[in-house]
Amino acid sequence: MTWVFDHLGLLGDLTVTHVYLSVLPVVIGLIIAIPLGWAASRWRPARAILLTVSGLLYTIPSLALIVILPALISTKTLDPVNVIITLTVYTIALLVRSIADALSSVPPTIVAAATAIGYRPLKRFVGVEFPLAIPVVVAGLRVAMVSNISLVSVGALIGIAGYGQLFTNGFQLQFVTEIVTGIVATLVLALIADLVLQLIGRLVTPWTRVGR
């Protein structure tokens, strides 16, 4: 424990980096996945293409993609941008399918009713269809978030900052406390991120708790 209190500054820095590297891809991924999921739910060919591509992307290991990216987009090998792009790709691959499925499962009668009272397609999507898909989207975001948090640690093996550095450093110094601190910090961060997402999910869907 003394080690932890002596290194609060380091832990703070690593926390900031870890949160930044795992949360930013979820935000960017969500923003990109919404229009893609919408397209996949509207047009059959778009659905076939998007779901096949995202399935394939999801299969490619993240560590592999982090390593290959520099050659594809000429970034530096240890640039954090490689991690952000990789994890964004995974978040999109994961969310496109759940958003498409959630949008397709909005009852046609609701869509018809919204159209009948004068909603134009875009406003109907923002005001009716997407809100109804939120619980599924939040479930997808929770999976993406937890897996991003643990994947950032893997990045430490090839020099990416974050809690993973506690593992590589502790390993090199044969220092168990540092590794255990890293494991606990990762678990706590995953738990907090999950609770925050659940809370946001509840706050933006007040109608799910009415009339029960």
Partner: peptide, 19 residues
């Protein structure tokens, strides 16, 4: 299952090596 899922694999790996 959720706790195990959040467990960082690299952390477990390095810890078990030391132990």
């Amino acid at each position: 299952a959720n706790v195990l899922r959040a467990l960082p694999t690299v952390g477990v790996l390095t810890l078990v090596v030391l132990l």
